[in-house]
Design a protein around this nucleic acid. Sequence first.
RNA 1: UGGGUUAUAGUGUAAUGGUAGCACUACAGAUUUUGAUUCUGUCCGUCUAGGUUCGAAUCCUAGUAACCCAACCA
Length: 552
Amino acid sequence: MSEEKSLNFIEEIIETDLASGQCQSILTRFPPEPNGYLHIGHAKSICLNFGLAIKYGGKTNLRFDDTNPAKEETEYVDSIKEDVKWLGFNWSNEFYASDYFDQIYNFAVTLIKKGLAYVDDSTPDEIATLKGSPTEPGKNSPFRDRSMEENLSLFAAMKAGTYQDGEKVLRVKIDMAANNMHMRDPIIYRIKHAHHHRTGDQWCIYPMYDFAHGQSDSIENITHSICTLEFIPHRELYDWFIHTLEIFPSKQYEFARLNMTYTVMSKRKLLQLVTEGHVQSWDDPRMPTISGMRRRGYTPESIRNFCERIGIAKRENLIDVSLLEFCVREDLNLKATRVMAVLEPVKLVITNYPEGQTEELMCENGPDESYGHRKVQFSRELWIEQEDFMEEPAKKWFRLAPGALVRLKSAYIIQCNHFLKDAAGNISEIQATYIPESKSGSDTSEIKVKGTIHWVSAQHALQAEIRLYDRLFNAENPSQEEGDFKEYINPDSLQIIPKAFIEPSLLNAEIGNHFQYIRKGYFCLDKESTKEKLVFNRTVSLKDAWAKEVKK
RNA sequence: UGGGUUAUAGUGUAAUGGUAGCACUACAGAUUUUGAUUCUGUCCGUCUAGGUUCGAAUCCUAGUAACCCAACCA
């Protein structure tokens, strides 16, 4: 029996609408402006809009809100489509606000004819001054009472290209004393002689957000137009246009956008990180962009799951990034192939293992038998992690130390007898003897050890560059700290290990594969990797109880 | 100092007048050929003050706090 899962407030509205016959089926839309790359905050909106349609048997349109040619580019359109698809969603129609420029223009003409819109020659400063303030009512523009005929011809002239940018705007006549600033004769068309990525130079006037978004919703018969909280004050205007133009009554609902600890989420700030070189690119694995997360090794499932768990509500939130990490570990635990890699190597010599001898050992590829096995070469000289040996073992230490017994994963139990140091006093070689009858799978030694460590055979190992990522910011909420958010960038967010030793099977790794380097974390092949120079990204580390123990 | 929105464990999110639940985090323990996974348990909460009611997170009154709104951006 499945448990009754509680509904979020939007699902409640939808169920009410469906039950009352307010609508037969639902139609939502995801409406990005193609002026940047999608990030995890957009993923929340995507999962909501598409998820709702899937849950209630409706449909979702992908609509580009491309009404500002100065900022928008085809590159962004392409990346957005790729990211939505990668997340696992299919839109039923791909639309553009620019598809509707003719209709929107006609809506404006309708408003003029109704005496509800006028051409204003005021400067931006004059318009701002007359607008008043939240505590002071605004004043009417001197151009507010132009005749319908004059407005019609002026607006036609605006469209025809008679005027320069900024010379005139079209405003709607509502109420200059309204409490809601958005109702004080908002501008609905401005002149912009700019090349549009889709309509080219066909237009030199473009509708503003408030006169494009709701109209597009209505043209498409969107039933539930879901946006973020900052658009609440726009809703009154949204409804006013629909009512005044007598068009399909789409309804707007608002939810709280995603904020996450140790990251920034605004497109403006993310753009700055890229253009100022704090990160390499939009898809830098440290970026909270969908493309960055994909490159880092996140899976669509883990992101969708995260979006499911954070919930939908109207209060401001700051989600702990550890929830995201939990979600990706949970998914990768089931998907990642287990392999062995040594990031910070030290030589281990098995002194009683014959020189020149090698043997193939069977290693499990995953958490249970169903994942199968692979063969891994074992030999006298191995690489192990420096951190798995302690000259003077700490309390509760159960890895390698002088005299200590430990198991080499999938191989033998060994005992450390000796170690060498270089001139600088660093441990340069560890020597041990192995117990032949302790072989993994056929262990008759009856020896129990607490520790198991990973290794790679020195003569068989491949070298690879490994990139370890940490949080991009040191502050929990960089945007809310004093000063510029960039002051809180973590200088150690990227650590490159130029020469790690990895097991040979990794030569066949492909982009999109996920690996668990046993005891080290989840990794994936980076797009910069070549057969000559392998490059891996750490998606996320494993939980590390020992590291916590050490901190105490 | 106008208008709008929101207040539930450390972080999120449920409970729709009737046992404050779930997840993450933190902590403790069991299992473990990954100090992973898995399993078990613990700590911790209704913004404040009044009121209505047999009973209030929920209803009423008065406060308080946070966020949003004065782009020819979306």
